[in-house]
Structure formats: C-alpha cells, structure tokens
Design a protein around this nucleic acid. Structure first.
Lengths: 122, 122
DNA sequence: CTGCCTACCGAATCTTTTTTCGGTTATTGC
DNA sequence: GCAATAACCGAAAAAAGATTCGGTAGGCAG
C-alpha cells in the first residue's frame, strides 16, 4: 500500500468524500456495478478507455472502504462479482446528480474547452 | 497552459463534472466564495492547508470555465473579488450534498483508514 | 499435458497535479 | 525613494495517480 507523504486533512467533508470516491474512475466503476455490471471483465468492457489494472486497483480501494463487496463464486470461468454495499448505496444519489450535472453541461464544457485551446495556441 | 497527453473522454457526465470541479481544492474554494469569502488572500486564510499558488491556479481554472467571475476593484490595497456565476451556482447543491456526505461519514472513514494502516504495517 | 479464460498482483514508467520558491506590477503610507 | 500589501505568473521539483507490461494461480476443455 502506498502511504501518502503529505498529511491529509479530513476535517472537511469535501475532502473526506473525495478520498472515497474522488479517483479518476471510482464513480464510473460504482455506476457500472450499480447498473448490474458486476464482474471485473465486464466492467472493463463497459469502461473501455480505462485499463484493466486501474479497474482492479480502484475496485480494491472501494472494497477496502466497504463501498463494494466481493461475492466470489468458485466456478468456471472464475467469477468474482462485486456488489454495492448499503454504505456504497448512500453514494448513489450523489453519483446520479453528478452524472446528471455533467451530462447537462457537457456541450457547454466541450465548446468552452475548444475556445480555451484556441486562445492558448493562437 | 498544460495540454494533456492522454485524450480526455467527455462522453460520460461524471468525467465532465470532474473536469470542472474535480480538482483537489476546487470545491473548497467554491464553497468559500459562496460563503462570502471573496478575496484570494482571505480564501487562502480559510483553507490554510492549501498553498497560495494552488488557489491562484484553481481560481484561474474556475474562472476560465465561467464558474466564478472576477470583479477587481482598483483600490488600495489591491482588491480582487470573486463571485459565483449563475453557472457556478448550479454546482452549489452538489457541493452541499458532497460536503454533507463527507461530514456524515468522516468518523467512519478515519477509523477505517487507521485499520487499513495497521494491516499494512503489522 | 497444453491452451485458454479469469482474477489478481508487482514494479517500472509515464502523466498529471500540487507544491515550493522566487519573481513582477501596482498602489499607498511614511 | 522605500517598505508594505495584494494579485498574479513562471518554472522546477515533488508527489500522487494512472498506465503498461509481465507475471502467478486456479480450473476447465480438448
């Protein structure tokens, strides 16, 4: 496990929240599991752009904080199924709102991004 | 401006949202401005643990995406006041919920973190 | 036994983000 | 002119985070 060098301040709710679900892919993974995509291989197929390894790692972190739980079935081909725990379920409403906000503002953000790039280059 | 090497995927609402307010201090800064702490110096005093520079930079990013706006007054001592724009205001409810979630779960997260460290060391 | 599938792990490397530190500019009070 | 204060910028370094690559292990089909 990697231990941070700069001490964290968890006196602020925002920072606590980001510690749990602030990773690049954590909410995407949580969303996938919540939608019934429970196996690592399938999650990876769902979030193609993320690498196999990062999904394994972020899944392990979500697991270690009890956001998801593993229900491995010892069958062929080896199956691991992840489920959102009751604790994890408390994140779902936030996830839904964040996703909705992003979807609603995607067009604006993309346009603005292009403008900013033009300014940076030109 | 730093231009990313890995191409971003903004096809997912979560990723769009994180692009705008996913930075380490962005929501904290937005929260401060929303609470009426509008000047860079004061924001820095409010979030002591964050460096002067990072606040300047994240403020600049929030500004470039129109989340906040600057209302500089040319007086002594030089004043810059930042305000949350109508666009930025749409983030406030999410911010409030994220903060509330983090505050509600801070004790659990801290305890769990200690347990995980014990396992890692022991 | 061999090849294949799935889950994971370790380590090196690369990318991104944050931090540190030292500037510049502008204005005021002395 | 000179100290002080505020805003902001640039660049290097440090830290964190993500990615790539190549493993191991178990079990099944042929």
């Amino acid at each position: 496990m990697y231990i941070n060098k700069i001490e964290e301040d968890l006196d602020c709710g925002i920072r606590v929240a980001f510690k749990i679900f602030g990773g690049k892919w954590k909410l995407c993974i949580l969303d996938a599991i919540n939608r019934g995509i429970t196996r690592p291989t399938d999650i990876q197929k769902d979030i193609r752009i993320a690498s196999r390894r990062v999904i394994e790692m972020q899944l392990a972190e979500l697991l270690s904080y009890g956001v998801v739980e593993k229900c491995a079935e010892e069958v062929y081909p080896k199956k691991s199924e992840y489920e959102v725990t009751p604790f994890g379920k408390t994140i779902i409403p936030l996830l839904a709102q964040i996703d909705a906000w992003g979807t609603a503002n995607a067009a604006f953000v993309k346009t603005r991004q292009l403008e900013l790039e033009k300014i940076a280059i030109g």
